[in-house]
Amino acid sequence: MIATLHSWARRNLFANLIDSILSILIVTALGWLLTVFLRWVIWDAYWQRIYESLRLFLVGQFPADQTWRAWVALALLCTAVGAVLLPWSRRLGVAIWLIACGAAVFVLVPPGLDRWGGLLLSIMLTVVVSTASLPLGILLAFGRSSRNPSLRACCTGYIEVMRSVPLILVVYWIWITVPLFMPEVSISSLARGMIGYTVFNAAYVAEYVRSGLQAVPRGQREAARSLGMSNWTISTEIVLPQALRVVQPALVGNVLDVFNGATLVFIIGLMDFLRAGQLILVDPAASSQTNEVYLFMFAVYFVIGSAITFGSRRMEAHMHRSTR
């Protein structure tokens, strides 16, 4: 073991004089930075501030006696993620995903959508938006590559408009206009935020799916037609499954974009994970703990972001295995 390590170091770190000098400098610098950082994390940082605000960070104003709902939802979401990651039937995976996510939303709704906050809000927003924008995006992608000119123009126009305006504008616009169109129905800010974000994200999903549709060889369609299949059957049974398989990693990558973009819903007064941290910092008593709060948020974002990237890589690996 030591010998292997030794020969590895010789080969990679100390191959020649310049390499050796560089290695020593870099390793020393990194070591020093790490020591300074760890010393601060262990001795100087005031983690009490995070600990006492943990509830706000995780669930916002979710009623304390209903916390079990958040745990149940978390378990359901883990089930959903597991179902789509495991290499069994894709249809079954998607079905479990839909049922589990739907159940998670159902469990969380009773205390009121406006009580959602913190990480709970960020995650549920990501789940709902990325799930809901998939069917919408698929429809738009088919619309854009349709032969009906008015349908094609509408879908192309929609996608291009959504892709050329910022997310924050779409969310704010939906938030203002929905109550103007429907003054009798009261829809909570969060629901409107979800609608706005879905409407926006669907355009991006549509472009991913369209690239997948174009990747399906022409011969597939023609062969299906010569077998006498209807247009509907060709699209849903032949083209779409192949297209989705190609763009699956990109779509999972889009989930990461949705999660990171979810912070922008602060504009309509929702309290997501990032805003919860800022809220803690507006209290002058906490202003000296800026580093602790931001480091904690960085760590949480990093862990969740890495998990999503990992999921996307795993899916890619499955895909390569199945097309080999």
Binding site: I176, L180, P183, S189, I267, I268
Partner: peptide, 19 residues
Amino acid sequence: VHFVIVTGKSRFNTVTTGQ
């Protein structure tokens, strides 16, 4: 009472649109 959380930008819209 139900607190509708607003920002400096959205406060007047929230009231004029009846939210």
